[in-house]
Amino acid sequence: MAETIAQRIQNDIDTNPVMLYMKGSALFPQCGFSARVVQILNHTGVPFQTANVLEDAELRQGIKDFTNWPTVPQLYVKGEFVGGCDIVTEMFQTGELEKLFEEKGIVSASA
């Protein structure tokens, strides 16, 4: 049986401790908001996986429906939705993002 888009997303966020749905790739983001989240994640040094919604129309709509969130990027940590660019940026600025990674046992690759 074909995997539904929701199953695929659930599997992604279960398998990858830090999973970012974005436009473009970590190396070549194709949207300023996605680029900013990648920059923040790179700065924190945690390993993360990305999925490019621009390469997959089903995923582009599917992730919005799955999260009930109208925009991309979307960051998941240990299967939980953290937020989009605004929330991730704010959490980074206040130190909450790194605290969240610590609490969830996600260790910076450079540490």
């Binding site: 908001f33 009930n68 969130w69 109208p70 925009t71 939705f81 953290v82 937020g83 989009g84 660019c85 605004d86 929330i87 704010e90 959490m91």
Partner: peptide, 24 residues
């Protein structure tokens, strides 16, 4: 934070449906 944003997204659902693309 996520709940606050959801509150605003819900209010603006018609705008998202009619072309609003990014909301900071």
């Amino acid at each position: 934070r996520v709940q606050r944003s959801r509150l605003v997204h819900d209010l603006l659902a018609p705008e998202f449906a009619s072309g609003l693309h990014a909301l900071s």
